[in-house]
Amino acid sequence: MAPNSPSLDKTSDAAMSRRNFLRGSAAVGGLTALAASLSPLRELHDFTNTDQFLQKYYKELTPDDMAKVLKRIESEVEKNYGVRPHVRDLKPMDGVEFVYCLNLTRCIGCRKCVHACVNENNQSRSPEIQYIRVLKLPHGSMDVEKADQNYAPASVPEKGFFYMPVQCQQCKNPPCVKVCPVHATWQEKDGITVIDYDWCIGCRYCEAACPYFARRFNFTKPEIPKDRLNTNMAYLGNRPRKQGVMEKCHFCIQRTRAGRYPACLEVCPVGARKFGNILDPNSEVSYILREKRVFIQLKEEMGTSPRFFYYFDK
């Protein structure tokens, strides 16, 4: 055996040793794997500047910081869409807690609210992101397992069915807030659960935690036609989102915190949607909760205590 070893080394020198071959292949393989693993970065379009990257948590921003952030967002939107938006950071009002009531007797399932919402809140048109799902249910049943959201008859309402629009229920005890590992979503004192799109890491825990399927994820860069961009924007509301963040209904924060009704209510052709301040005893929502047959908070048994109530007229 002994005399063989030196001669083996000799032959290796002449061509290539097994060790060197393995080293070379491993190096090339490693580089390929690295390149493949970095390839998702090619789809990163929205990473604009270091200001955004170094931006502080929403609750830690001073008014000066916020002014700078809003300026940055405005110029980004102008760059991407060619229009200068009006972005505000609207704070909750004192003595106001928002509640939504929806009259199931009146709703005809026309889905106008769905599209008014998309239009108001700058949701992606392709792929489609919609905050409101209108469920068609057979009369005499509240079983959402039997619901159909893809109905497409020539005209609505159809005989024997009723329609139940479902959107974020703005829970008093929101499971989505509890699961967020970075506190990118929280409940404000006027009852609206908001998302800081610049702080969200896109883990989608909140989407899984929500019993109402109210949260939507931007799998791709959202597509909004320039001529349909709503330029009245709020930081926690309808400013354009980027790929990889969550979004959901926020009771049209850019409207409601400025005193206006949400877009879904303004477009409802049958007046089935009611919105207002529950702390004001003269508001229509106070009247409804006091006087009408308020039938459900959806999935009441979950203990989420929604601020969204469904009621009947008769």
């Binding site: 005809i108 026309c110 599209h115 919609q130 799902r133 959201q149 109905y151 497409a152 005209s155 609505v156």
Partner: peptide, 10 residues
């Protein structure tokens, strides 16, 4: 209130 055409679904 007459019936009407629904907006497109998802």
């Amino acid at each position: 209130i007459p019936t009407r055409e629904p907006a497109p679904g998802p």
